[in-house]
């Protein structure tokens, strides 16, 4: 490691923002879908904006809204958010070389508003020798603003068409989950966890329809199945 101290400058902020701009376009459809679904289940725009801007997780929004009320499933929603967010706990430590050098409030802001793609961009920047944490805030800000624009456009676009409960537009959420799954499933490593999770989710959903506990049950079964398989057949050092 070089001796250059970690900086936090406006210059790097602008550089990160410029680098993020073309990449953000790929996140627009996901935002649109979130806005459409939020409108369809009856959230007001104020509620939608709050969820888009502070919760800042399209996956959590789509999962939770797929099983929305009335009544509002408060406990199930919060537990779902916890389960989905767990993996994010492993992200911050990798950004520690930058985060450790900036004020605490700035650390919290940078951590909360770093999505999947900007996070990957920042890891790449850091590994290529980047020594300025302003880059992180620049990428994060651009993604956050684009996300709000996409989600809002989806929300208002959806009010232009009459959405009945069985409308195929709702399939957009499922399609986006399928695309995400195809993109990030590690084969063959994730196959056994996925089979265990799917079967468990189907059974629990059949037994307890109308809420989202089947997701938690599926995740639990998938993680347990994966860890058990690793115990019985340890993955090779080079693999996965």
């Amino acid at each position: 490691m070089s001796e250059t101290p970690i900086a936090y400058t406006r210059h790097a902020f602008m550089r990160g923002a410029r680098a993020a701009l073309p990449v953000t376009l790929s996140s627009v459809p996901f935002g649109l879908v979130c806005g459409v679904v939020a409108n369809a289940v009856g959230l007001s725009y104020a509620e939608t904006f709050l969820a888009l801007s502070t919760l800042y997780s399209g996956t959590i929004m789509l999962v939770v809204l797929a099983n929305w009320g009335p009544p509002v499933p408060i406990v199930a929603s919060i537990v779902t958010a916890l389960i989905i967010s767990l993996r994010l706990g492993l992200w911050g430590p990798l950004m520690a070389p930058w985060l450790d050098r900036i004020p605490w409030l700035q650390r919290v802001i940078n951590l909360q508003f770093l999505g999947d793609q900007p996070w990957a961009m920042n890891i790449a920047e850091m590994r290529s020798g980047g020594r300025d944490a302003g880059y992180m805030l620049g990428t994060g800000t651009i993604f956050w603003v684009t996300w709000l624009i996409g989600g809002s456009a989806g929300y208002f676009g959806a009010s232009l068409i009459a959405l009945t409960p069985g409308h195929p537009i709702f399939f957009a959420a499922t399609a986006s989950f399928i695309a995400t799954l195809v993109n990030m499933a590690r084969l063959p490593r994730d196959v056994i966890p996925m089979v265990a999770s799917a079967i468990t989710a189907l059974i629990v959903n059949r037994m307890m329809p109308g809420n989202s506990w089947y997701i938690m049950a599926g995740v639990f079964a998938g993680v347990v199945a994966g860890l058990l398989r690793d115990r019985l057949h340890p993955p090779e050092e080079t693999g996965a």
């Binding site: 999962v63 797929a66 389960i83 989905i84 767990l86 993996r87 706990g89 492993l90 499922t174 989950f177 399928i178 995400t180 799954l181 990030m184 499933a185 590690r186 994730d190 966890p193 996925m194 265990a196 999770s197 799917a198 468990t200 989710a201 189907l202 959903n205 089947y214 997701i215 049950a217 599926g218 995740v219 079964a221 998938g222 993680v223 199945a225 994966g226 860890l227 690793d230």
Partner: peptide, 24 residues
């Protein structure tokens, strides 16, 4: 083990979400 366990969450979660939707 914790890292591996977290690693299985995303795929398990997505399939748990998709499977009942498609089945129903």
């Amino acid at each position: 083990t914790l890292r591996d366990g977290f690693g299985y969450v995303p795929a398990s979660m997505l399939i748990a979400l998709i499977a009942p939707t498609l089945a129903n």
